[in-house]
């Protein structure tokens, strides 16, 4: 999705995708980020304890921690609420 996403939306995508261990290349590919912004986002989430970095046979992978569940749940509630509580559109 190369559309205009906010950083909060990108954090959510990364955290949901990293429920199973993922490599840096897989994350930036899936979340449509370039290397530089990918490093920034992953660095932020790892620094805040939302992502843990593991090394398996010389390969680094990222996995979402328990803290990430709180953020993804809040995000899901907020965005689904846009359809549940907000105005509706019909032709």
């Amino acid at each position: 999705m190369a559309e205009r996403r906010t950083s909060y939306e990108i954090y959510w995508e990364i955290l949901v995708y990293c429920r199973t261990p993922r490599t840096f290349t897989a994350i930036i590919g899936r979340c449509d980020l370039n290397s530089k912004t990918g490093q920034e986002y992953l660095g932020f989430l790892a620094g805040r304890g939302f992502l843990a970095v593991k090394s398996d046979s010389g390969r680094s992978t990222y996995i979402a921690t328990d803290r990430a569940a709180g953020y993804t749940a809040l995000f899901t509630q907020l965005y689904q609420g846009l359809f549940d509580k907000g105005p509706a559109f019909r032709v």
Binding site: R48, Y71, G81, K85, G86, P87
Partner: peptide
């Protein structure tokens, strides 16, 4: 009508960003 509906949703999403920011920080 469609644009109006989505403008309200964008506004609501924007308002929710504060709680997301708090959760991250």
């Amino acid at each position: 009508r469609y644009a109006g509906t989505w403008d309200v949703r964008l506004k609501l999403a924007g308002e929710g960003e504060e709680s997301l920011k708090e959760a991250l920080e």
